[in-house]
Amino acid sequence: MSGAHDTEQVQRRILLVVLALNALLFVGLGVGGLAADSSALLANAVDNGSDAAVYLISFLAVGRALIWKTRAAQASGVMLLIFSVLVLLDALRRTLTGTEPVGPTMMVLAVVAAVINLICLLLIRRQRSGDVNMKAAETFSLNDFASNGGILVAGGLVMWLNQSWPDLLVGVLVAAIAAKGGIDILRDARTASREPEDPIP
């Protein structure tokens, strides 16, 4: 029991840290995305905001019965899928109305976000848990880190070509990565729900 309790305490601490970091990224990338008129940054901001909400759900599920954990993971997957649809709609709107993203701002914020997401990923992997919610958290951090790399490249292309399409393209790719992550999480949750729950001693 002591070992399980210690594991739960570690999970809670990690989830609180990554929750706080993702909430900060949500605000920072959101403000930066509006200032830079960047679809990719705004997509990443909304992604981090949804991640923060999911981390809160996962935090509340730690130590509870398996059904709570799988439902929390399912909520995580559904939120990622909803987010991906919203980003696609925003990219379509910007394609129709026009946009003028600021490349340097995109690149600087992408690097900052990548460092923070790498910290989150290392913290989660250090825990070495097979828990479905911790696996979901790892998926989120991997998705965000990949998205940051895409935004960095898009910012450079925007500066080089003086066109907005790289920003819009990365915004759509961020949505696609989120959608794949959401499907993976839902699959993991379904698999976990079929496994027998450990008996309470």
Rank of each mutant, 00 (worst) to 15 (best):
G103D: 06
G103W: 08
P104W: 08
P104I: 10
P104S: 14
T105A: 14
T105F: 08
T105L: 15
M106V: 00
M106A: 05
M107L: 09
V108G: 00
V108D: 00
L109T: 02
L109N: 01
L109E: 02
A110K: 04
A110S: 05
V111Q: 07
V111M: 06
V111W: 04
V111G: 04
V111A: 13
V112G: 03
V112T: 11
V112A: 13
A113K: 11
A113P: 07
A113E: 03
A114D: 09
A114N: 05
V115E: 07
V115W: 10
V115A: 15
V115N: 08
I116D: 03
I116E: 04
I116L: 12
I116K: 02
N117H: 14
N117E: 10
N117T: 03
N117P: 00
N117F: 08
N117L: 04
I119V: 15
C120H: 03
C120Y: 04
C120W: 01
L121D: 04
L121Y: 13
L121A: 14
L121P: 07
L121N: 09
L122S: 08
L122W: 06
L122H: 06
L122E: 10
L122M: 11
L123I: 00
L123E: 09
L123P: 00
L123H: 01
L123V: 00
I124L: 14
I124E: 14
I124F: 05
I124S: 06
I124C: 01
R125I: 08
R125P: 05
R125Y: 09
R125T: 13
R126A: 15
R126N: 08
R126Q: 13
Q127S: 06
Q127R: 03
Q127M: 10
R128T: 00
R128D: 02
S129D: 11
G130C: 13
G130Y: 06
G130M: 07
G130A: 12
D131R: 04
D131L: 06
D131K: 01
D131P: 10
D131A: 12
D131Q: 08
V132E: 06
V132S: 02
V132P: 06
N133Y: 00
N133Q: 07
M134L: 15
M134G: 04
M134C: 09
K135H: 05
K135R: 14
K135C: 04
A137T: 12
A137E: 06
A137L: 13
A137P: 10
E138P: 07
E138N: 09
E138A: 14
E138T: 07
T139N: 10
T139A: 15
T139R: 14
T139G: 12
T139Q: 12
T139S: 11
T139C: 08
F140M: 15
F140N: 12
F140R: 09
S141W: 05
S141K: 09
L142E: 08
L142Q: 04
L142M: 12
N143P: 02
D144Q: 14
D144V: 05
D144N: 14
F145V: 02
F145A: 05
F145G: 00
A146V: 11
A146I: 12
A146Q: 05
A146T: 11
A146Y: 07
S147Q: 01
S147K: 00
S147C: 07
S147V: 01
N148S: 13
G149W: 09
G149D: 06
G149Q: 03
G150Q: 03
G150Y: 02
G150M: 04
